[in-house]
């Protein structure tokens, strides 16, 4: 038995018939072929599958696709919102905030919520807001630098836009 779902993913409405048990992460990866969102665990710890759902960062391995019916989902593929890179992506690259890159999409999506909620985050806020994302390679130091740098970049972009 399948249910019809209609989810706006990265700005495009996508509909499909899915089994209700299909997790949102599998819907994104297997149905929509958006494989940037990864699966790293099965107990909602690692955060590799983090996407934004109606603006909120969620672990897409712990949401059924049917629950996301009608929702607006942004994945790493839509983070930049067009050509080029999002400031978070730029900052992760510049500060060597990734090694194997497997946790990175989820980490950046969590970081995007963090910077929406705390545009000028303190170190403590960064740590508290990224507690749900495990990285095994970097030791996190460069992730912190990347997030701090991204905050600066976003601020500068906003100021430049404001000046125009």
């Amino acid at each position: 038995m399948k249910n019809k779902v209609s989810i706006t993913v990265n700005g495009v409405e996508r509909s499909a018939e899915v089994e209700p048990r299909m997790l949102l992460v599998h819907f994104l990866r297997e149905e929509l072929h958006l494989t940037g969102t990864h699966v790293g665990c099965d107990t909602t710890q690692c955060g590799a599958c983090t996407v934004r759902m109606n603006e909120q960062a969620v672990k897409s391995c712990t949401v059924f696709a049917v629950q996301a019916d009608g929702a607006n989902v942004t994945t790493v593929e839509g983070l930049a919102g067009g050509d080029g890179l999002h400031p978070i992506q730029e900052a992760f690259r510049e500060h060597h905030g990734l090694q194997c890159g497997f946790c990175t999409p989820g980490m950046m999506m969590a970081a995007s919520q963090l910077l929406d909620r705390y545009p000028e985050p303190t170190l403590e806020q960064i740590k508290h807001q990224l507690d749900g994302n495990i990285c095994r390679c970097t030791g996190y130091h460069n992730i912190i630098k990347a997030v701090q740098s991204a905050a600066e970049k976003i601020k500068a972009r906003k100021q430049a836009q404001g000046a125009r």
Partner: peptide
């Protein structure tokens, strides 16, 4: 220098085994 591999990895275009379809 920043890494060459990052461009695909930060945009979700890496190809890990589970991404093979």
């Amino acid at each position: 220098v920043p890494r060459k591999e990052d461009e695909r990895l930060i945009t979700g275009r890496g190809l890990y085994v589970e991404d093979v379809q």
